[in-house]
Simulated assay, not measured.
Amino acid sequence: MPDLKEISPTMADKEPLHPQIADAVQQTPAAGDTPPEVDAARAAGQERVPDVDKREPQLGLVQDVTAVTDVGEVPVRIYADDATAGRYGVIVYVHGGAFFSGSVDTHDHVARALAKETGKKVISVDYSLAPEARFPTAIEQIFGVLKWIVQHDVELKWDEEVLALAGDAAGANLVAAVTFVAKDSHFRRITHQILYYPAVDLDFDEERYDSLKENAEGYGLETKELAAATSFYVKNGADPADPLVSPIKRKDLRGLPTALVITAGYDPLRDEGIAYAQRLSEAGVDVTHVRFESANHGFVAQFSWIDEFYDVFRTTAKFLRRKA
């Protein structure tokens, strides 16, 4: 895996955007700087979800259950490739979607691939979205699910060895925040955190990170839409100055779980992900950073059907085999 301190290539040296991603981006309507229509965005995502019998990869176990937590009932979907295993390491997966969209259905294929390639049981959390849910509801629900897993270890066949948190984009933001809550609450059971192109700084001043300018437009997610897309979260109590909202602003990152940080070469959020990985490393956290140079933001959910990007799940499996 690449060294964390590897220098980012210049634009002249970068691999070109993958041609299949480039074709898809060309067909995508131009981004705006006004908040999206919530219902329309959610419906569009749902329309792309395949029928249940056509979802890949096929697994031995896919089950919808309700986690009864100390903050209320939280829907989750449980996946396992081998339904007959005696015990499982567990990955709690948190989908992306700018805090206002996405679901266990829209990211069902991501959870399936994680279960298939890692051999772990994946528990995907259908957390409450903005603007209906105020901050920090989603964080509390995800932490509640973690505690529910520990409390129901026998029924869930948890092996008590691996309890990983994984998320993409806004989901990775929530994962990072939950690791803070867990540490501050003396909950020591999280063994790994997996952050796919994380949104760890909701201050979108373009001067903060070069990638906000370098990848500002033409690659799918555009810099000018970032503030608008996250506005539903911010306007419902999520202050970008709060480390639970912008994890990179937390001063003390010591003692957090072993981390895998995945970034994409053509992502406006690339450099904040790299900076967060560096800060974790400087705080003594064991960090692996892998950059998929020809990918854009969202590639884990949108382009993992391309084999070189599906490799992100194999990379995750390799990471989880490391001792926490």
Rank of each mutant, 00 (worst) to 15 (best):
R254Y: 06
M11K: 14
R321I: 01
H95E: 02
R250S: 01
F180H: 03
G218D: 07
F204D: 02
Y219V: 01
D53A: 10
L280S: 02
G89S: 05
F99W: 12
G218M: 03
R254L: 05
A238V: 10
H297A: 04
V49G: 08
S246W: 12
L165V: 03
H18K: 14
L61S: 06
P268M: 12
E217H: 14
R279M: 07
L114W: 12
E73S: 04
I139Y: 15
V261H: 09
V62E: 09
L156V: 03
K157M: 11
L212H: 05
D33T: 06
G265Q: 02
Y219N: 03
D168K: 02
A228G: 15
A44S: 11
I142W: 12
V150T: 15
D51M: 10
G220A: 00
D126F: 10
R250Y: 04
A31R: 13
Y219S: 01
P268L: 12
A166C: 06
A80R: 12
A80V: 02
P16R: 09
L146M: 15
V110D: 11
G298Q: 00
G96P: 08
V287I: 02
F303D: 01
A22D: 13
F292N: 02
E160D: 12
R112C: 05
E132Y: 08
G97M: 00
A130D: 13
L146H: 10
A295Q: 06
K235W: 12
G220C: 00
P75F: 05
L260Y: 15
D307S: 11
F135T: 11
F299G: 00
T191F: 07
Y266M: 03
R322T: 00
E117P: 05
E155L: 13
R208N: 04
L195N: 08
K5W: 15
Y196L: 04
T315F: 11
G60T: 00
F303Q: 01
T118I: 01
G86T: 03
S101M: 14
V68P: 02
F204L: 02
F299K: 00
V90G: 10
S304G: 04
R208H: 05
R250T: 01
A317H: 14
H109V: 03
P29H: 06
R134C: 05
S211F: 03
E272W: 06
L59A: 07
A283E: 04
R254C: 04
G144A: 15
H192K: 00
A31L: 08
E140Q: 13
V38W: 14
A169V: 04
Q151C: 11
A31F: 12
D267V: 01
G72F: 08
D168A: 07
I7F: 10
Y276T: 02
A324M: 04
K251T: 13
I149L: 14
T263S: 01
S185K: 10
A111C: 08
Q151I: 13
K235P: 14
F299N: 01
V94Y: 12
A166G: 07
H186Q: 13
S8I: 09
S185M: 09
D105V: 02
L221P: 02
V200M: 06
G72V: 05
A170V: 09
A138L: 09
E161P: 13
T137H: 13
E56Q: 14
I21T: 07
E206L: 03
Y79G: 07
V125M: 14
A283H: 07
